[in-house]
Design a protein around this nucleic acid. Structure first.
Lengths: 240, 240
DNA sequence: AGCATATTCAAGCACTTAATTGAATAATTG
DNA sequence: CAATTATTCAATTAAGTGCTTGAATATGCT
């Protein structure tokens, strides 16, 4: 009997320890701010300062949240001079984050409501158009632009997309064709860059719409993803 | 300028609201006990009482945790007489839970340490043997037994596995072949049923080992999964 | 109807967490 | 070497969480 209890306790301890470890990951994912940081880190490495200003948090608070993510081993750091660069600890994390988001979108109808309240329906690329997008690009009837900051583009982008950071968009409108459909994408469904880009483009008479996919969604669909600078001939032919 | 601020605030509100929703899921996953409940619910529907006794929690506490899972819409309930039956809200949840666990196993070396401390190496089916298991079963050199409670077996089980709940194992040893390798599996890596089964079997002279896969892992590998009672002819031929 | 059982609710307690603030550390620059 | 900049640390506060306890609700049984 005491031996039975001992074994039963061992089993309980094993379970508690195991699920306790799983909960370390869960805890890391339990704060909106940490999730926002993680989503940004899925796009590219970043310094604490850059993450703080992007998320509108104080540097100290950002640092604390990043340490929480590091404790869960979802991110890691390297020191570069005065800067500490945070990055995902493994590509698996960005893959997981995507599934986490998809689960939330599937289970929580509120997310779709929030989205509908913020985005107007006519600026989105419809699911139908999304499937034929690659085709339309190949037929030169559409062009995809990546409006994220350049280093995120370099980390990974939709193959064939033209890098035009939102900041530069107004000055570079002449590079874009008025005859084609212009599809802008950014970090994913919770990023507002592409929405702003579409507003700018439409106000200048372009036919523009927003693709809510991130480059990770694109990859997960088995569609081509590229790394680094855009091929030079592309820029020359695309520019008008 | 005031209009800019207004728009900037709208964007911030959109992000805060969106990531706030994601965090609802994260919060549900941030407690060891809730994760244990969720893992159990991946195996089959259960009443509050059943979940409480399985996890060694008070009924009230179990009920509270289940409500937290329900708030995150990961589980749902139906009332059956006096009982409230909790179940996963969608098959996507069990698929997600598996990936969550795999991420944790990948990122947190502590999990492997805890496992090694609890399981002895020689009772596990090695990764190599796992890949050829199906083959050995077909060649009638091995037999797979499912030692979970019967209703979990009925919900889903490895195709061809023989249902022998751990509770009945000692009385039903005569049904098992002494010439074949006996492979026991249960709910997955954090479940102790198969370990106990292997100990019982070995102490009675069987060649037995534990397969740490759950039926969901099996399905995710593209291997055959079945539902319901075992085919009758199987039981007759298998029984000795 | 009265009792037993399954579950939920509500209050209370110890403990944890998120965010702020100001100081400390560490690397770089003039 | 002093000043500057990026980050972390430590202390504080308010809010939130996990678990317990005892009561309340709801269903079924005799």
């Amino acid at each position: 009997m005491p031996d039975n209890t001992y074994q039963a306790n061992q089993k309980r301890d094993f379970k508690d320890a195991s699920y306790g470890q799983l909960a370390r990951i869960g805890k890391a994912l339990s704060s909106p701010k940490r999730l926002e940081l993680l989503d940004l880190l899925c796009q590219s490495d970043r310094t604490v300062e850059a993450l703080a200003s992007e998320t509108r948090m104080s540097v100290a608070n950002t640092s604390q949240h990043l340490q929480a993510l590091q404790t869960a081993r979802l991110v890691e750091t390297t020191k570069n001079g005065r800067y500490v660069v945070y990055r995902l600890a493994d590509a698996l994390v960005s893959d997981f984050f995507r599934r986490f988001r998809l689960l939330a979108e599937n289970r929580l109808a509120e997310i779709e409501q929030i989205r509908r309240r913020f985005f107007s329906e006519d600026e989105e690329v419809s699911p139908v158009d999304r499937r034929t997008l690659l085709e339309r690009v190949q037929q030169k009837r559409a062009i995809v632009i990546d409006v994220r900051p350049q280093n995120e583009y370099r980390t990974a982008h939709i193959a064939g997309a033209l890098p035009i950071p939102l900041e530069q968009l107004k000055q570079r409108l002449s590079e874009l064709p008025r005859t084609k459909e212009v599809v802008a994408y950014c970090r994913g469904p919770f990023c507002v860059l592409a929405k702003e880009a579409v507003e700018v483009l439409r106000s200048h008479g372009f036919r523009a719409s927003r693709l809510e996919d991130s480059v990770h969604d694109w990859r997960a669909r088995g569609l081509p993803v590229a790394v680094g600078e855009p091929p030079v001939h592309r820029r020359l032919t695309r520019a008008h």
